[in-house]
Design a protein around this nucleic acid. Structure first.
Lengths: 194, 194
DNA sequence: GCCATTTTGGTACGCTAGTACCAGAAATGG
DNA sequence: CCATTTCTGGTACTAGCGTACCAAAATGGC
């Protein structure tokens, strides 16, 4: 169900944001009707009033969060000074786009980026959204490389993303996981001129 | 709790195998006391009698499954004919070790390999086990490359694994996911002599 | 201001979950 | 062969879940 009144629209949005926050901090399993309602300061029934099912709520939360991430990436692209694209800074820029800015809650935000990929394997209803978000991220990276004076083909973009993603998921099993550091090492090596 | 009688040991093992089967077919969420007991043909209470908690049961199931996978890999290594390590066949061999043999239920078995990596992010109790299994897989690949006459360093092994893993998780969001094909493409390109 | 529509929020239902309990059966060892 | 440990399996408790329901309140168009 979609809201018809301004106040209703605000409440609906509050629910989406609450769900997104829960998604980031606790993963898909944390997005529950009651938890979302409580976090948004709204009654339980509001969640079923504005969303036909939990899946719909999860989808909306994921879209909200994914769109925010992309907006951050686009901002970084816009403010990019082609001159200051030395190797190290550029590697960090790419990592910021793929894993989120370093300052963030980090561990959990990074984790969510991969939980949602894997979760999509068992939740086909997420696929259209995930494809859309993923496609935009690819485009963004493509543009960033171009603006930085290191144009690359789409295949190369996919390769670098795969390398980072693989490094991250393998780093998650460490006692004190530092996925960003692992990804950084591999990305730096792959990007250095040969 | 660990069994003290032969029959008890057999029942315990039946529970572990039932849990592992559920793990493969439905992921972590499918491993429930009742489901495991039913699949093993045992009463509900047997699950709490032999395992102090669900986490313990999940851990045992994961260890069982992981060890079976490694045994398969070791068998492939043992029967490897260094002569027949042409490029294509070798790529498939590596994929068999990383994703499981192609004939398998496939989609679900591959998915589990990545669910467990990501799940480890939110389930620290799995980390020691996952590190152990992952370390053995690395060793195995290292040996395979050596025996195939293409010795590589540990860093290179990690790179190739990351590439495959990243390709897979990114393939999971396709409408009709074919993670093996995606991984195959990237791995073949990365391994071809430059 | 009136009335149809939308929204609210408290409550309840049916279900599944993890886990606890315990009388009795089976196995074990001295 | 008996005493003790180990095991069995039916049952029940509490908690949390998604979802449905519905009387009352708020809202918006006329």
């Amino acid at each position: 169900m979609t809201a018809a009144t301004p106040k209703g629209e605000r409440r609906r949005q509050a629910l989406v944001e609450a769900a997104a926050a829960l998604l980031v901090s606790g993963g898909f399993d944390a997005v529950r009707h009651r938890a979302v309602a409580e976090r948004a300061g709204l009654p339980l029934a509001s969640t079923t009033y504005y969303f036909d099912s939990l899946d719909e709520l999860v989808t909306a939360a994921l879209e909200f969060h994914g769109t925010a991430e992309l907006a951050y990436g686009k901002a970084r692209l816009a403010e990019l000074e082609p001159a200051e694209c030395g190797g190290d800074a550029f590697v960090d820029l790419v990592l910021d786009l793929l894993l989120g800015p370093v300052g963030e809650v980090d561990a959990e935000a990074v984790l969510l980026r991969y939980e949602r990929l894997v979760a999509t394997g068992r939740r086909p209803y997420l696929r259209p959204l995930m494809r859309e978000l993923s496609g935009q991220l690819h485009d963004l990276l493509h543009d960033i490389f171009a603006k930085a004076g290191q144009p690359v083909g789409r295949e190369r973009v996919e390769e670098l993303i795969a390398l980072v993603d693989g490094a991250v998921v393998n780093a998650l099993i460490e006692i004190s996981p530092d996925p960003r550091a692992a990804a950084r090492r591999m990305l730096a090596k792959a990007m250095q001129p040969r």
